[in-house]
Structures are given as C-alpha cells and as structure tokens.
C-alpha cells in the first residue's frame, strides 16, 4: 500500500524560443503517493504549470523535456508517443484548468463535451455514456441535470462551468487529478464548495491530487504535502504543517509573510517580496532567489545549494542552513 503513483526524477524542461533557451523547469524531483494531495505553490512563471503538464505529455512546441524521467502509474511518460499519451490523458490522469470560461468549447453543448471523453476511454454506448454524464453532473452538485446537458457554456456561470470541468476530469475516474489554479477564478464560497467536492471524491476513489495554486488558504485546506517552486526549481518541500509553520527557505517565509492572515490578533502588515522574478533566459549561477533574498551571502550568488533534509519529508535548498551545519 501507499505505493508511488507518480515519480519524477531530475526533470528539466526548456522552451527553445528565438530569444534563446528558457529553462522553465530545472532539475526537479517529486514523488506522489496513492491518494495523496500535493500542493505546488510559487509565483507566476515559476514552472509549476509546465511541470504538471509534462505529466500528461502536454508540453507544446517549442517546449521540450531535456532531461529526467516521469513515471506515472507504470508508464514512462517522456518516451511515450502521441497515441499512447492520448490513451492515458483524461483516463488515468486528468486536469482542471484555471479559467473555466475559456476552457470549454463555446460551440459544443456541455453534454457532448462530457460524453466525448467517456466514449473515448470506455466501451460505453452513447446512451450509457449519457447516463454516466448525468450521474457525474449530479456528483458535482448540479440539479436539473437533463436540461443542463443540452445547454452551452455561455448559459453557465463560472462556478458552474468549473463543476463541469471537474465532472469532465473525473469522468473516467483518474488515478491523478491535476488542478491548475482550479479555484483561482472563483469567488470564495464557490471555491470552498469545489475544494470540499474534490476532497470527497478523492476519498471515494482514492485518487491523488496535485493542486497548483498561489493561495495558501487552499493549501492549508486540502493539501498534505507542499512543494514551493521558484524559477523552475523546487526550493522547499514538506508536509503542509512544516511549510506553513516551520518554513526554512527565505522565499517560503517571504511568501507566507505576503499572505494575509484572517486569524491574527495584531494588525500585521503584509510584507511584499522585493524585486522581480529572475530572467529565465539568463538564469543566475547561484541560488535563483539570491538577488531578492535579504540574507544573501557571497556563496549564494556563486553556486546553487544542494537539497538539505530537515526532517522526514521536509527538505530545502538554502546555503543558510548549510552554515548552521558547519558551525
């Protein structure tokens, strides 16, 4: 039990543009157990989406997996052809995208977009697929489902569309669900409902989830593990409690300080992280966060720190921690 559903090793993904090579994902390794919920946080452009799309083989030109391997549910993703990938996409691994308003085809009915994925991956007839679609829309909390199936995306609200997206993603009971900022575009109440829904389904189907977000409240709500990404690297990884209450990397601390806390008694000021993200076309030699880090040392600018294990399942890459070891 608790075997690994996903095992990413030394993954490097680059986009080869006219301006040069952009290292979107730089040497990340990640394991995900059956039924585990992993959160990936980081600012825009930190590579969290690219890393998770690669699990589905969805890296589009001019992007390419340069190095490393991705083992998912006994498949070796990086060597699989187009046809083989099509067989697992939507069946063993599905994704819910950020903006439900643009992620559904405006010209096709909700029903047909739901039914097509069922027919594609199962032997169900059209009638059986429709029954399953009805069941799925009920599962994500919709009423008047028969009517809903015939409607088009423009007749739905954002929250409703995101439910449809989730229904599509869950249609073939995937082993892994990737939620790419799936709740970011939604208001707080709907967001809570959707998260609740995901947790229920996860328990029922023993599905693993990767939540990509920059919202720590989402992380706190449903994730067991958290990976913090910066400039294409995982700079800190650990159990949710460790990351939230005992962060070790300066960037993680910065992120948490920049997050409002509704429970705090004191009027805390939000502290933004100074500076701007690194230019991935010319990545720095050392730690990518060093130019923005308040505790930057000489060595930080010269070479990249190695991962330091803090405790079980908690590691980070920061020279400050190495220093503690030396003293």
């Amino acid at each position: 039990m608790n075997s690994c559903i996903l095992d990413i090793r030394d993954l490097e993904i680059s986009f080869f543009t006219q301006a040069g090579e952009i290292k979107a994902v730089n040497n990340i390794s990640l394991q995900l157990k059956d039924g585990e919920v992993l959160g990936i946080v980081g600012e825009s452009g930190s590579g969290k989406s690219v890393a998770s799309y690669s699990i589905m083989g969805l890296i589009a030109e001019p992007g390419k997996i340069v190095n490393g391997n991705i083992r998912f549910n006994n498949h070796t993703i990086e060597t699989m052809g187009k046809k083989e990938l099509q067989k697992i996409r939507g069946k063993e691994v599905s994704i819910v995208f950020q903006d439900p308003n643009t992620s559904l085809n405006p010209l096709l009915s909700i029903g047909s977009q739901l039914i097509e994925v069922i027919i594609r991956h199962t032997n169900k007839t059209k009638k059986e697929a429709k029954e399953r679609a009805v069941e799925l829309l009920g599962l994500v909390g919709m009423n008047e489902v028969d009517k809903r199936l015939k409607q088009y995306p423009y007749e739905f609200s954002g929250g409703m569309l995101q439910r449809v997206m989730i229904a599509i993603a869950l249609a073939c009971e995937p082993k892994l669900l990737i939620a790419d900022e799936a709740t970011t575009a939604l208001d707080a109440t709907i967001q809570a409902q959707i998260l609740e829904l995901l947790l229920q389904i996860k328990k029922k189907n023993s599905m693993s989830i990767i939540m990509i977000t920059h919202d720590f409240s989402v992380i706190a709500n449903i994730c067991e593990k958290v990976a913090v990404m910066y400039a294409g690297r995982i700079i800190e990884y650990g159990k949710t409690e460790d990351i939230l209450y005992n962060p070790k990397h300066q960037y993680t601390m910065g992120l948490l300080k920049a997050t409002p806390n509704i429970n705090s008694h004191i009027h805390e000021k939000l502290v933004p992280i100074k500076g701007s993200p690194v230019d991935l076309l010319n990545p720095p030699l050392g730690c990518p966060f060093a130019p923005r880090c308040e505790k930057c040392m000489k060595i930080c600018l010269r070479s990249m720190p190695k991962n330091k294990v803090i405790s079980d399942d908690h590691y980070t890459a920061c020279w400050l921690l190495e220093k503690k070891l030396w003293s």
């Binding site: 589905m56 969805l58 990938l85 099509q86 067989k87 697992i88 996409r89 939507g90 069946k91 599905s94 994704i95 995208f97 903006d99 643009t102 992620s103 559904l104 085809n105 405006p106 097509e116 994925v117 594609r120 991956h121 997206m165 599509i168």
Partner: peptide, 12 residues
C-alpha cells in the same frame, strides 16, 4: 484554452 482542454481529454 479549449483546444488544450480537448487535448487533455485524450481526444484524437
């Protein structure tokens, strides 16, 4: 985006 969605569904 919906083309990306269609691809993610494993459609041919």
């Amino acid at each position: 985006d919906y083309i990306r969605t269609a691809r993610s569904k494993g459609l041919s």
